[in-house]
Design a protein around this nucleic acid. Structure first.
Lengths: 345, 345
DNA sequence: TTGTAGGCGTTATCAT
DNA sequence: ATGATAACGCCTACAA
């Protein structure tokens, strides 16, 4: 508890021998004030250790200089990178991040969105296209500009910065098909409430279909994004539907899980089994052999979402949709389909 | 832009046929209002789609229901986990996280701290003990309760929830000493502005010293926390001061980098080289062989910091310092020191 | 350039 | 239990 109540702008004004209005201007519109008086005000500020009262300022200006973001688990490395980049971008412009995270729970997401809008967020960042209808309604009604990240809105209803998960996924699958693989398995993320996971999965289906191949249900398994779950899923696939020569992970941790489990079982990668992921986390390039994957510029997505929002708050117009590049990074975990019989030999 | 300006509490009051004061009470102190009228107010709220104006409320109550956290790179997995846990804990209590992150830059940290305090954060979370003096001064002056996380304040000046990095580090070194290692190298994090990195490093020194051994300067190298930097550092150590049989990483990514590089060079781990880390990130337990490390309960630290802050805001007293367990997790990357000559053979 | 005064949307005090 | 009304701390026409 502060012994002395912290000084108000009036105190500064008094100490500087000017009016409240002048003190206010000296701080927020410096060049509307004579240099001399401005100096006196600044001295007073320093002397009293005055700290502006953001809440009051916000009430008067109807701006909080705050951007709200509601993200799925921030501890997923890709969201962590985006969060960091976003926070940095905002800080550089004098804005602060109001962060809420949930565990792929749309109701929690809605609640968080409400909370952030109530707190007066000047702009909002959401992830993906799967939301409760109320979530977007809250946003529309409040008139807060928002950006959808990661996904691209086909209908063009929202401002968004992301990529085509389906398209990228097709690249991965085609890469494997080109290598001669015909029996492919997928360890997808949990597709419920997650359009990215869904699109990545259907990308594989589409790619196979376009070559007249099918992706049997037993060759698909969904698992929460983690290395441990990737291992488990790979084991299940092996038991349930052996005979595949390549496995695609819904993200890198899942793929790395499959890779580690394959190696643990003496399955040669890529000799007997090819493995591919999605995201290109740091480790993907460091593991031997390097993990073939899609590079998702997650930090760049966070940064760009921030930039766009700030621009819009300044009244500028930005293209409604911003597609980020998501190239295939072919590394050592994918190779030609084995000539003979698939594993188990 | 909203066509219609969003409804205020007055509008709700009017629609419900009550006074502003009653409408306010019906929402914030429901049982001070007759059930009947309360119902009418709630109907009006629903009808008008009224959303409370947090900023105005904050100005009147002098509470923002917001907690500020300023973290080093949130994309470091351990901070990401803590951020997520903290956000969740706060959300459950109706609080929101104001997040700022910096790149181990104390001036940026100070600026962020100022920004969050200005925004009216009811409480603050910082990481570690290395700060600009002004940073803590700002906190003290404003009277905002804060928690130092990760580190423990020996002097007992601050509320904190963390662990003894030196103590944990000693455990790691002793573990290696007990395995017969005498020539030990360290890939420390950047110790400048990072008391955790410094303490971890000096823990190794202390452990060696207590057995009459020294840690030569050439056996220590500092590197930013990442797998790639861990690899590089390991290479440099090998060139600069070969002959060691064990290497301790300042955190898991650094250790994993060393591990991967060792393996890439055909150095057997743990046969010829033992490797240990710090943090116990998910991957540590999944890699073959599992990485010996210290388990740092980072999510728990975030959660606990939130809990303590919320308790203090309710006027409860909490023990000034909360030490978290940080056990040694011995896995496969550490083994007996090789009998013969150290690598290179 | 500087000062005066009203307003931003709630909560809280004090009557009734 | 409900109603007036003064804070809360700052910004911003408007006036001087």
């Amino acid at each position: 508890m502060p012994r002395t109540p912290s000084p108000r702008l009036v105190d500064v004004a008094r100490a500087a021998g000017v009016s409240l209005a002048t003190a206010s201007r000296a701080l927020s519109e410096p060049d509307m004030v004579r240099e001399n008086t401005r100096g006196r005000v600044q001295e007073a500020v320093a002397m009293l250790g005055y700290v502006p009262h953001g809440t009051a300022r916000a009430l008067a200006t109807r701006r909080t200089r705050t951007i709200g973001a509601v993200f799925p688990p921030v501890d997923n490395p890709i969201f962590a990178g985006a969060t960091h980049a976003l926070a940095q971008e905002l800080a550089a412009a004098g804005y602060t991040l109001l962060l809420a995270s949930h565990d792929y729970d749309l109701d929690a997401e809605l609640a968080a969105t409400r909370a952030l809008v109530e707190r007066g967020a000047d702009g909002m960042v959401l992830v993906g296209l799967d939301h409760r209808p109320e979530t977007l309604a809250v946003l529309e009604r409040s008139g807060v500009p928002y950006e959808i990240t990661w996904s691209l809105d086909g209908a063009g209803n929202h401002h968004c910065v992301g990529l085509s998960h389906r398209g990228a996924s097709i690249k991965v699958a085609q890469h494997l098909l080109d290598l001669g693989h015909r029996e492919i398995a997928v360890i997808a993320g949990i597709t419920n409430n997650n359009d990215r996971a869904r699109e990545r999965l259907s990308g594989v289906r589409d790619a196979l279909a376009s070559r007249g191949l099918k992706l049997p249900a037993k060759r698909v398994i969904e698992a929460p994004f983690s290395v441990a779950r990737g291992r488990e899923a790979f084991v299940k696939l092996l038991e349930r539907a052996p005979g595949f020569t390549a496995v695609i992970g819904g993200n890198d941790p899942l793929a790395i899980g499959a890779l580690l489990e394959a190696r643990a079982r003496g399955i040669d990668v890529p000799g007997e089994m090819s493995v591919a992921g999605f995201d290109d986390i740091e480790l993907a390039g460091e593991l031997p052999p390097g993990l073939t994957t899609i590079r998702v510029p997650s930090a760049e997505i966070g940064r760009e979402a921030g930039r766009r929002l700030l621009a819009r708050l300044e009244g500028k117009t930005v293209p409604r949709v911003r597609e980020m590049p998501a190239p295939l990074i072919a590394r050592g975990t994918t190779g030609p389909a084995p000539k003979g019989k698939a594993w188990p030999r």
